[in-house]
Design a protein around this nucleic acid. Structure first.
Lengths: 334, 334
DNA sequence: CTGAAAGCGCTTACAG
DNA sequence: CTGAAAGCGCTTACAG
């Protein structure tokens, strides 16, 4: 591979001049610049990333830490990843994708070895074991998902409390007084997926305020358990006129379940949910829903992270930001 | 961050001895090794990746190039990515995920800059614009998907021809003589997704051999076009007793479409398809299908690539390997 | 079994 | 506007 020395030789200048031509950090005469550019394209020169990283302590790579839990419904993950990768590239960064089962160790490894300038943690839990490692790392991080303590961290998440209130308000406004709520699976609560109880608790609180009934159930994440459980909830609450589904796997399966049960939406049952535009499209879902906006979350996570990388001292303190939910009415309620 | 010099100082040895202790490339006395290990864990030392890469010309990172096409159905992509990441890690490699719209340029950049030791190209097309770049790169690559010329390349793909024959044979054996085939969308053919015509052409050929009729149609990738098109195919071929669906988006939507049409499977229509176990589970698909085995494809791609990285000269010539399809009978035919 | 030294390919103060 | 030189943190022949 061509090195900066090759370029310098061919252009008849010193290596430092080539370097400055590349970085633009000092002025270069037009003639010199021309010769350097010519040599660069003649040789197809691209600076060696390792050498650059060694010298500058910057890799222009961001780590992206994904969690994959057993027995979980994965299709939505890609929706976070792609906007993150796109936003990173727009800011000049590449993405190192880390999927190790032992996430804390992997995070320790990529930060200590200086492979990344910062990290994005996806699917952060209440008591996330990656956070102690992140706090000890020299690189900053941005989280998607709300941990118990956000101290010193850039945190982004959907406002699940507000999402729950919007949905309950929507149904209450239409006159519904008995509502089934299908939450994420029990193991998501147990694992510390705070969005699960943030949504449920806000929904319950809102219902109490209005004096209406919301019946919460843990949903399932796999067939055939999903169908069995949804049918059981409906059987248990024959007077319920509406259903709130906060569970990806269950909402994806719902059209088939209701169909085979002969339940028409919204005539027999009003249904609202929580999912992204793309998710709804992939599963042809016809339900009124709050949009989870993974693209906005991912993009903003990268933006916060990049800002923090550029300015580690931090003009401002780290940000915890809740994205405002937006309801898309698809006519699945009445 | 701690450097190898810090470790050497604390352990009271030279830097080279620390390095050799790390690599195991020469024997070290027990006492020395103990002191070095102590110093390493006391300091939390991890070798700097950039320095190591600069010296060894190895980054222990693999590039993973993804294509995301407009108007496409993405949920299956993650199924390739995760096994690739897992297999890479098992071999000591991290994954640089590259999603740039301008893939040839991105590939050029990550190879020339020496960011990766090799690359995996996903979703390779007949005339893939990334291949000229890959052929000019100093790092080897492995492809998933069949290009026009496999010369000098490690190539992996499902045997779509054999998959088509298996499915046609299955239906023929049950007595079906008029079969609807829903292929990938037209733009997949036009873009050069060879799996689209490899499957279709093999199905047609097999049908001709048996003297039965297979009616091929381009499927759609988005709702509501999917439902409209599938209904149109069924209307156009009222005598068809079976359907082969080689189209992710259409098969995902099929249960709802057939349901609303009042078509029972397999009583009114036999249905076979082509999808992975996970995909089928995510969409609760009840159809007999050939498994696409993205996990095996991804794993083997990484294995071939790593072998090639270790032994660039190559004991053997590059491999083009077609994974044998396996039919899973879910009782959707009769 | 161990150490001193060169060098990988860059960037950037220092000097002119 | 440009160049010579140091140094980032490793690895590995060379030497003992």
């Amino acid at each position: 591979m061509a090195t900066i020395a090759d370029v310098a030789r061919i252009a008849g200048v010193s290596r430092s001049t080539v370097s400055y031509a590349l970085s633009g950090k000092r002025s270069i005469s037009d003639e010199t610049r021309r010769r350097i550019e010519e040599a660069i394209s003649a040789l197809g020169f691209t600076p060696n990333a390792g050498a650059r990283a060694l010298k500058t302590s910057q890799t222009m790579v961001l780590g992206l830490l994904l969690q994959f839990h057993q027995d979980e419904f994965a299709p939505a993950m890609l929706e976070y990843m792609l906007p993150i990768a796109d936003e990173a590239r727009e800011n000049g960064y590449d993405i190192l994708m880390v999927t190790d089962a032992n996430a804390p160790q992997a995070l320790d490894r990529i930060t200590r070895s200086g492979m990344v300038d910062g990290v994005v943690l996806l699917d952060v839990t209440h008591d996330d074991p990656r956070l102690p490692v992140l706090r000890g790392a020299r690189q900053p991080g941005a989280l998607v998902g709300l941990p118990a303590s956000t101290e010193g961290l850039e945190v982004l998440d959907l406002d699940f409390g507000e999402a729950a209130r919007q949905l309950v308000d929507h149904l209450y406004g239409l006159g519904h007084r008995e509502i089934i709520l299908i939450s994420p699976p029990k193991h998501v609560f147990e694992r510390g997926g705070a969005y699960s109880w943030r949504f449920r608790d806000a929904a319950m609180e809102r219902a109490a305020k209005y004096g209406i009934q919301v019946f919460p159930y843990f949903g399932e994440s796999r067939q055939p358990a999903i169908a069995v459980s949804v049918n059981a909830f409906l059987d248990a609450r024959p007077n319920a006129t509406a259903m709130i589904v906060h569970n990806d796997a269950s909402i994806a399966a719902l059209p088939a379940i209701l169909n085979s049960r002969g339940v028409r939406v919204p005539d027999d049952l009003s249904v609202v949910s929580l999912y992204s535009k793309n998710f709804g499209r992939a599963f042809s879902l016809p339900y009124t829903a709050v949009e989870t906006a993974p693209d906005r979350l991912g993009q903003q996570a990268v933006q916060l992270l990049v800002r923090r990388i550029m300015d580690p001292a931090g003009a401002g303190t780290p940000v915890t930001r809740f994205i405002a939910p937006e309801l898309t009415d698809r006519g699945s309620t009445k």
